[in-house]
């Protein structure tokens, strides 16, 4: 019994220590951000790795999600004779929830895991260590540009997800199922508010971007410098990011849309 309490306490302390390390780490990363203004080319390279290479999976998933959403909603709405509000339903679900959340989960799987593996491997092969010996701070030179690129990419990717998803919904709803094109767009416009829905959705994606990239770069930097350590860290990035995105989505949704 006492042993069980002791083990629980130890585990709790380990989690706290990790959280502390992660916080100290991110503060060092943030301290390294101003330097990037003078060397923005470092960020551009990472925007390519983190953002551009994620476009394909985001666009394809968004198209599929939008089409399925439209198809499913259509048959339910038709039972109530209100299939005109299809556009509104698709747009609101995408803009408020599915866009930021699904884009976040995909981003964690595509870009987050790649970031962790890359930084972890650089650590395992002593590249970070040798950089230190060349009097270059790897947190500023390697981690900070990747962090900034992740935070900048996420809202853009989430916006793309929502926009492409709505187009997918339009293709199926209007093109295939025969909903009136005018009603589709006008009811959407009438009921989607720019500030309450779109800006809040973007705000969500910014928060997700910070959290996912933070987890990814920290896990890479904190990984055990062995092949097994790096693969475990990569797995943890995906799992922890997914949990964090879902948990924060709940909190943010309650804060943003709970008041009505």
């Amino acid at each position: 019994m006492i042993e069980a309490i002791r083990l629980t306490g130890e585990a709790a302390l380990r989690v706290l220590a990790r959280l502390g390390r992660a916080t100290l780490f991110i503060s060092q990363v943030i301290a390294g951000l101003p330097m990037l203004l003078r060397r923005f080319s470092l960020v551009v390279t990472q925007l390519y790795e983190v953002g551009v290479l994620s476009i394909a999976i985001i666009v394809i998933s968004a198209l599929a999600v939008g089409m399925v959403l439209s198809l499913q909603m259509f048959y339910t709405l038709r039972d109530f004779g209100s299939e005109q509000i299809l556009g509104q339903v698709v747009a609101l679900s995408l803009v408020r929830e599915l866009g930021p959340v699904l884009a976040g989960l995909l981003f964690a799987g595509r870009a987050g895991s790649a970031l962790t593996a890359e930084i972890g491997l650089m650590k395992a092969t002593e590249q970070l260590s040798s950089m230190e010996m060349m009097a270059v701070d790897p947190i500023k030179r390697v981690v900070a540009p990747r962090f900034l690129a992740g935070v900048l990419s996420m809202p853009l990717l989430a916006a793309m997800f929502s926009a492409v998803g709505i187009l997918g919904g339009y293709l199926v709803g209007v093109g295939l199922l025969g909903v009136d094109s005018g009603a589709f767009w006008s009811l959407m416009q009438a009921n989607v508010d720019f500030y309450d829905d779109i800006l809040n959705g973007i705000l969500k994606s910014v928060v997700f971007g910070i959290i996912i990239t933070w987890i990814a770069v920290f896990e890479g930097y904190d990984a055990k410098p062995t092949a097994e350590g790096v693969s475990r860290a990569t797995m943890r990035t995906v799992v922890h990011s997914a949990f964090a995105v879902l948990a924060f989505d709940f909190i943010l949704t309650a804060l943003m849309f709970g008041g009505r």
């Binding site: 080319s41 551009v44 853009l156 709505i166 009921n191 989607v192 779109i198």
Partner: peptide, 30 residues
């Protein structure tokens, strides 16, 4: 260190993101 192609691809990425935002603002919302 990085090529012209990277720059162009990143430029396209940012432009596409902005287009998506404008579409959400103008076409989707009120």
């Amino acid at each position: 260190m990085y090529s012209k192609m990277t720059e162009i691809a990143v430029g396209l990425f940012v432009a596409a993101g902005v287009v998506a935002l404008v579409m959400l603002a103008m076409k989707v919302s009120n």
